[in-house]
Design a protein around this nucleic acid. Sequence first.
DNA 1: TCGGATAATTGAACGTGTTCAAATTTTTCT
DNA 2: AGAAAAATTTGAACACGTTCAATTATCCGA
Lengths: 235, 235
Amino acid sequence: MRRKTLHKRALTVESGEAGSKGEQTRSLILETALKMFGERGYEETTMRAIAEMAGVAPGATYYHFRSKEHLIQAYYERMHEIHAESCAEVLKKERALKDRLLGVMGQILKDMAPYHQFAGVLFKTAADPQSPLNPFSPESEPARRASIELFADVVRGAKAKIPPDLGAELPALLWLYHMGVVLFWIHDDSSGQHRTRRLMEHTVEIVVRLIQLASLSPMRPLRKTVLKMLADLRE
Amino acid sequence: MRRKTLHKRALTVESGEAGSKGEQTRSLILETALKMFGERGYEETTMRAIAEMAGVAPGATYYHFRSKEHLIQAYYERMHEIHAESCAEVLKKERALKDRLLGVMGQILKDMAPYHQFAGVLFKTAADPQSPLNPFSPESEPARRASIELFADVVRGAKAKIPPDLGAELPALLWLYHMGVVLFWIHDDSSGQHRTRRLMEHTVEIVVRLIQLASLSPMRPLRKTVLKMLADLRE
DNA sequence: TCGGATAATTGAACGTGTTCAAATTTTTCT
DNA sequence: AGAAAAATTTGAACACGTTCAATTATCCGA
């Protein structure tokens, strides 16, 4: 609600950009919050404490961020930018489908590592079907689309022979697979999440072999059945 | 903490059973809470309101239930009992693997239908890796085990030819599949969740065909790879 | 049946995330 | 530069889930 005003201002006149006073406090609050979450954990960090440390009244935080959970969304967005960048490197180097997928998944796990502690909280929020942070929600469609695009890149640049019908759905399917791995990662408290790494390496191998298998002509009927279902669900 | 006393009492002496005063208020609070959740939703139902409607002080609720979320766990347990019962019927009738799986999944969806509204809240809580309600947590291992046992029953009673190595892991895999369908169901706000029904019917078909496929001898290497991974992850 | 022990219940109080009307600062326009 | 408008900031207050010391009801053995 309040933010709407901010948006309008940013559209009608220029200002509201990085330099302006408001945007300055916004960053200050955000950086403070992220730092404190990192040091003491999410639940243990009070909105009052964040405000105090940022030298600001509690209410100010709510002017810039809709809720405490929305502060966490900042992590999310930051993480996404990092992914896109670090994966681009990998995709420039590798040509085999398996290596591309392995590289991308490896990068994603590496990028996420520092945030493992908050992932639980983020996930708890994101799991709520009502939440805009939910990866399946309409609000996060742009982010989801971008994320799927990353896997489209993985497929596109690979020199594997994939039937067009499968190729069209593959990015979304790989994204779903990637969500599964992340789900495992969130619950993985082995040191350095090495269990997730093992799972990922094994499953990438399996996924690639399944793709090869599905591309064979005797598999056409089953493949068509699966693709029909996906099309059907999309309405 | 407080509950420990209750448990000890229930073990050392008898009493604390259905008749006793304490157990009476416990049910009263629980029934009131479930009814109010049903009428107004979870977030909108206040602990104070529950207590007041039950004719009890707010503190009393916390003597019998550790938290508001633990009141929801009651739904969970209740649902599980219903599943076990209604699925038993289906499993007595059907012999083909596909029909057994279809029947069980259908029953589960039917049983859950009245609770669709709260499923989101339950899921939000259950998604927290810290939560005892999390289906992957140690605390819910008994429930998980029982649930997997249901799918073991599905496999056991079927007259499909399944290699022993796959047969051993299949119940857990089917349980995982079932969790996926439930995840979809939670996010499904189509009328009567008919999209989930469609998804379920299609995917059961696919799952069964995959099982048949995996049982073929040319698939032995891939099958072994998958099963190795599962064994590996179990430590 | 009585009295001690245990279980159950109370309700005020705490700390939390959050809201909001009022005050203040910043920006915009003439 | 100055005044009007808009954005920002304040901090007291609210409602909530929850805790806990004190109180009352219930149970059980002698």
